[in-house]
Write a protein that binds this DNA or RNA. Sequence first.
DNA 1: TAGCTATATAACTACCATGTTATGTAGTCG
DNA 2: CGACTACATAACATGGTAGTTATATAGCTA
Lengths: 111, 111
Amino acid sequence: MSVVEQLSNDVGVELERVLKALASERRLLILEWLKDPSAHFPPQEHGDPVEHGACNQFIVDKLGVSQPAGSRHLKVLVDAGLIIATPRQGWTYYRRDEERIQSIASRMAEI
Amino acid sequence: MSVVEQLSNDVGVELERVLKALASERRLLILEWLKDPSAHFPPQEHGDPVEHGACNQFIVDKLGVSQPAGSRHLKVLVDAGLIIATPRQGWTYYRRDEERIQSIASRMAEI
DNA sequence: TAGCTATATAACTACCATGTTATGTAGTCG
DNA sequence: CGACTACATAACATGGTAGTTATATAGCTA
């Protein structure tokens, strides 16, 4: 199947959006950090870093941008389906959607 | 090797640029068409479509944008290393850099 | 309830991407 | 040489991206 024909697939439809989401050094860093939250962020009092991911605040701090700017980067990644947000006890935790990321990586092999 | 560490590689250094180049429906179409120039463009009087690719004019026409707009899309792809330009007898032919594209696809598997 | 914290949203600014038309440049051909 | 063609570049308009500060919302906690 051609890349263009894939534009009618669930992933293919979103291909341009996903690529736009990935085309940012800061968002690539976020995805990298989320591969191993415990290694990149301070210990969390609530929420298991492995199960739920890292909280917004830690990510924003590490990015070195304002809280709204970091929050929007995370939203872009969520909207592209690359990460999953889990609101919990006033915090929001983010983790990679590995299945979806893998699916996108497969499509990229056919670009 | 992590994605971030790859930022010191030849491909990794360019990862953001490549993703920005790919994050455009029009440029994805160009790459798709160049997979098989003979199937997507009229016969060329000069230049072998398989060896040198399709000429600027055909691509621009098929995109349906102005000549400068199409020309710039092609330049973005060239600058990202995704296609190769071959000036010849007043025309410029473009073909995919399959080796480079494959290299990028491999890196994407580690995103 | 009152106040604190975490996150999201609004409003604004600056910059980049992409489109256009106009023009420059290089090669072809009569 | 002069006209034509192919492509690149310049100049400009416009929309989207990404940053900021200010403000709203929601959940703890005393």
